[in-house]
């Protein structure tokens, strides 16, 4: 088996038929489809069983408890038998020949992983979303795609499904997501990957159609799971601390991303119910106070916009 496509399903019954239709257009004897049912408790599993009969290479993996996207992907990874692995969300789909091209790209470059662009879909309106990494079709160390911190770089394109990964070269441990994270699970995973892997390439394939603003998607609703960004970034900072060399070079970038995402959530706090808003503010303030003060100071000086005053006000008001 060359490629394993890992597709978690959670309360995704309306999308099952489309998802299977999509995958069946990319069925191949070198490809297996690991369909992870994340203990939805509705008819998702029935629908998967019913529809997957027409998908060669389909394997349904049932989880015994609901663990969220990160845990479901880990379950899929544990079951995967392919040398390469890629991910797909249940409501997204591929353009013609995409999967074949994706597989061909990593075989061509022969590197640890390859990242690609994608298409964002809002109804019939579609926009091409490109990875902010400008060096295309060349193999280089992913560490060189982390900086600079004052603008977006490869690491600021946090979509696990926009790429293909060589498990043999990366090792199963490095591919694992942080169990328990329900949002932002891609961030610490990507940081680990970028810090540890030897080589990667970015290519301009844009055959994955990513549906924005699906009703009930986590980005729309004010849910406690939205606050997982704090755990995700704490994880990144903690892991950087283990490697003094990396910490010296990349801490600034990580802290800046942390500040940016915190400010983003504070600005959009209106979608949270009052008690959650309070929790967001207190936890964010604590998190900011936990960061190395000198680095935070530098970041604030470099950001120099409204976000800084939002964060400084928060830190003054809520304290450590």
């Amino acid at each position: 088996m060359k490629l394993s496509v890992i597709v978690p399903f959670y309360r995704a019954e309306p999308f099952v038929s489309l998802a299977i239709e999509n995958l069946s257009r990319h069925a191949d004897r070198d490809v297996e489809f690991v369909l992870v049912e994340d203990c939805s408790g509705d008819r998702t599993l029935d629908a998967l069983r019913q529809h997957s009969v027409r998908l060669p290479g389909a394997r349904i993996i049932e989880r015994q408890n609901n663990g969220g996207l990160a845990a479901a992907r880990n379950t899929g990874l544990a079951a995967a038998t392919g040398r390469y692995v890629t991910f797909l969300d249940a409501d997204d789909w591929y353009g013609p020949r995409y999967l074949g091209q994706l597989l061909a790209s990593i075989e061509h470059f022969g590197c640890d992983f390859v990242r690609v662009d994608h298409v964002q879909v809002h109804g019939r309106r579609r926009t091409i979303a490109r990875s902010p990494e400008g060096r295309r079709d060349e193999v280089f160390s992913p560490r060189d795609s982390i900086l600079p911190s004052e603008r977006s770089s490869g690491i600021d394109y946090p979509y696990a499904w926009a790429g293909i990964f060589d498990i043999e070269r990366l090792g199963a441990d490095l591919m694992r997501f942080d169990d328990g994270l329900h949002t932002c699970e891609d961030r610490p995973w990507l940081w680990r990957l970028y810090l540890t892997a030897d080589s990667h390439a970015v290519t301009g394939l844009n055959g994955l159609f990513y549906r924005r603003n699906v009703a009930g998607s986590l980005t729309d609703i004010g849910d406690r799971r939205q606050l997982h960004f704090i755990d995700a970034f704490d994880q990144i900072i903690a892991e950087l601390a283990k490697d003094p060399d990396a910490e010296q070079r990349y801490l600034h970038k990580a802290v800046r991303s942390y500040c940016a995402i915190t400010a983003h959530h504070l600005r959009a706090e209106g979608r949270f119910p009052p008690e959650l808003r309070d929790e967001l503010r207190r936890n964010s303030s604590k998190a900011m106070h936990r960061l190395p003060a000198a680095c935070l100071h530098e970041v604030f000086a470099a950001m120099a916009d409204r976000r800084v005053s939002i964060l400084q006000r928060l830190m003054r008001r809520y304290g450590p």
């Binding site: 353009g95 013609p96 298409v119 019939r124 309106r125 579609r126 091409i128 844009n206 055959g207 159609f209």
Partner: peptide
């Protein structure tokens, strides 16, 4: 559709 991929022909 191929000629204008990845966009939608109705738009």
């Amino acid at each position: 559709n191929c000629a204008i991929a990845p966009f939608h022909p109705s738009l």
